[in-house]
Design a protein around this nucleic acid. Structure first.
Lengths: 390, 390
DNA sequence: ATTGAATCATCAAGTAAGTTGAGTTAATCC
DNA sequence: GGATTAACTCAACTTACTTGATGATTCAAT
């Protein structure tokens, strides 16, 4: 939800922090890498990289990992991320519950918890978030000094928009900046995003999009969201609400309806309710799919075309390296949906020599929002920027 | 068409160039601005800004423009862009013709020319581009030393995609990098983009989007394109082909068809051909509209719904500050189309307190592609980046 | 009219961070 | 085992920004 980024001037201090973040990101992307290679790729001198690596080592963010065998010359010492060098708190606020996870520097969850919560007013939500943070760091015995920040994920859109009041977003933050509010309550740097954007970041930090800089994440939440990563940055639009793909018009049964009325968890729940199946209180979607419940299968069959069209829209408008599907849907159903998509030939994404599949299944499962919340913080720690968020 | 940007390290030299571009961009955005104000906004010391301003003055890029009246204290000396301080060559390559324009630093065209060209092979196109550059600088009596670079605009998509061979793109560059090719031929820094992206940049540099950092430009060319500006950078996707909105599926007469078959210059030409009107050889579209030709009016009526849906898709997927319409359509027809759009309330763009209209008419007219070509160069000159294009 | 507060601007010395170039270490090639 | 190659280190150097003192210009209050 950090709106437009303002470009600031470069001075020694900002160059230092930019370079340290850049080196850290190259280490993350490579897995293992040597100093000379970083220098070649970054345009810095080997001496500068050496100094930076030495800093990162003493900060505990990276570790030495042996020497790499090469053809000739002195074999380079390899460095990789040190998982325990820093942790990120991820908190997902949903109506009815708060989820929290603690991620190490590599994006692995070292602790997680769920806290049901009926209240929805600002004070209670804040209290729940603060105690979730305390509980999760205690659970993993991680000291506050090692916390890089907290990521908070809430359903969007943020602020007052034409989509406000449709039920999924948190209206308590209409008039308060959630970033400043939670930063104050948690005494930590805070990043706030919607679930789809967080999921996209999660896949890049520790998922199927590692190594990709431009991709889209189609997120099944209560509704349907889209996280857009462009050149390693989230494309959040002018006011933080890009990716509301659930509200684009599609045709269903001859009528123009919002996409998410044909393709979302809410949509399948309504469809099943017609035949008397209550997903929340009765069988789970996964169980219904396992026994090939006819009502579910007919919904899936009907969803294939809108989904295919959505993929075509994403591909042609955004030209991503791949489109990832994930979110609050059982893995088996997501796989079924992915299998049912007809990828059109008439797409910019139908390129010869592709190395990545056009459609991927997200790696983070149903916890993707919570993991994504933490991943937002890691992503920020890895993103070099001589720029400040407004 | 500059694909992913690689983040590079910051050193003194790159910091210097970053800061000079940043200051230049602040001067451009403000129109007139003083040194202390730049320092406050940029995080640099006033001394640093003073030194940079002094450099830009001696390079002739900016000029002193009096002192501003303030409430108290010494009134700040104001600086603004010096139009004659640098020029950008803009070249638009279309099937059948080459257009060229020379833009001053403020984005004003100081010369322009059109050169019809039947050939489409690489050698002839290159020759035409080179002689257009020579002719246009001679026409305006601008020395080569003052040229900042050349922008080249061609219809996309670039490279081999599922949309290749559909007629609008230039296949001569399937196996050659157009950027390197033209840079070599022109002995100038070169930026290559498609028409829609160039149009978006043109509106930001000298048009209705000045001051906006995140917006979309819906471009009527032969087909239909979309230029996406996110935080002052073009969102070009993973392979440079983002914005192919003409190929997203929409419903027309009960069939799923690509949007541009209902909404593009080609579409209106086909529609008119059914009643025996040949737009190219006979009356122009503008003349037909002036006399309210029934066939044209019925096409316009039919185009309103797909256009409205396209706007809804753009708004909800990108949350732009505004959507600009422009390109190869007569102004009167664009105005009519804008008037016929039904803006849905259920959009993230339906925010209270908007300061910009949701829909704007582009300022560059039908030359927008050519002007955009030059604007690409200006935009690059103004974009501070401690980053290198791959 | 004079003094004081506020703001812009400049000078000169200082500082932080990356660069440079010579020299060292460690492996492979022949 | 010497030549070659590449990674790495040390110390001096360079660059561009920062800092703090001082001056300039305007408005406002007495």
């Amino acid at each position: 939800m950090s709106f437009s980024t303002i470009t600031v001037g470069a001075n020694a201090g900002r160059a230092r922090s930019h370079n340290r973040q850049m080196v850290l990101d190259r280490v993350r992307q490579a897995g293992q890498i040597g100093r000379a290679e970083i220098a070649r790729g970054s345009g810095l001198s080997t001496q500068a990289v050496s100094n930076i690596i030495s800093d990162l080592l003493s900060d505990g963010l990276i570790s030495e990992q042996g020497r790499k065998a090469t053809t000739r010359g002195q074999p380079p010492v390899q460095y990789g991320l040190n998982p325990g060098g820093g942790y990120a708190v991820g908190i997902e606020i949903r109506p009815g519950a708060i989820f929290a996870a603690l991620l190490d520097l590599c994006g692995t969850a070292v602790a997680s918890l769920k806290h049901t919560m009926t209240a929805t007013d600002l004070g209670d939500v804040t209290h729940a978030v603060v105690s979730a943070r305390t509980a999760i760091t205690a659970q993993a015995r991680v000291s506050d000094a090692k916390l890089l920040g907290a990521g908070i994920v809430m359903p969007g859109p943020f602020g007052r928009t034409g989509l406000s009041g449709t039920g999924s977003e948190f209206s308590i933050f209409h008039d308060v900046s959630p970033t400043a509010w939670f930063a104050d309550a948690l005494h930590l740097p805070v990043v706030v995003e919607n679930d789809a954007n967080a999921a996209a970041v999660a896949e890049r930090v520790a998922g199927v999009a590692s190594g990709l800089n431009t991709f889209a994440f189609l997120y099944f939440g209560t509704g349907l969201g889209l996280g857009l990563m462009q050149d390693g940055r989230l494309a959040t639009g002018g006011f933080g609400n890009a990716g509301e793909i659930g509200h684009i018009p599609v045709i269903s049964n001859g009528q123009t309806v919002p996409l998410e009325s044909a393709l979302s968890r809410l949509s399948v729940q309504r469809h099943l309710a017609h035949v008397g199946i209550d997903v929340d209180s009765g069988d789970s979607l996964g169980a219904l799919f396992a026994r090939r419940e006819p009502a579910l299968m007919s919904w899936l069959a009907a969803a294939a075309e809108p989904l295919s069209n959505a993929i075509a829209v994403i591909e042609n408008m955004f030209d991503p390296e791949t489109v990832i599907l994930g979110g609050a849907m059982p893995d088996a159903i997501l796989d079924h949906l992915i299998g049912s998509v007809t990828l059109t030939d008439r797409s910019v994404s139908n390129r010869p020599g592709r190395t990545t599949a056009r459609l991927l299944h997200g790696a983070s499962g149903s916890m993707t929002g919570t993991l994504g919340a933490g991943a937002l913080v890691l992503n920020r720690a890895f993103t070099p920027r001589i720029a400040a968020a407004s």
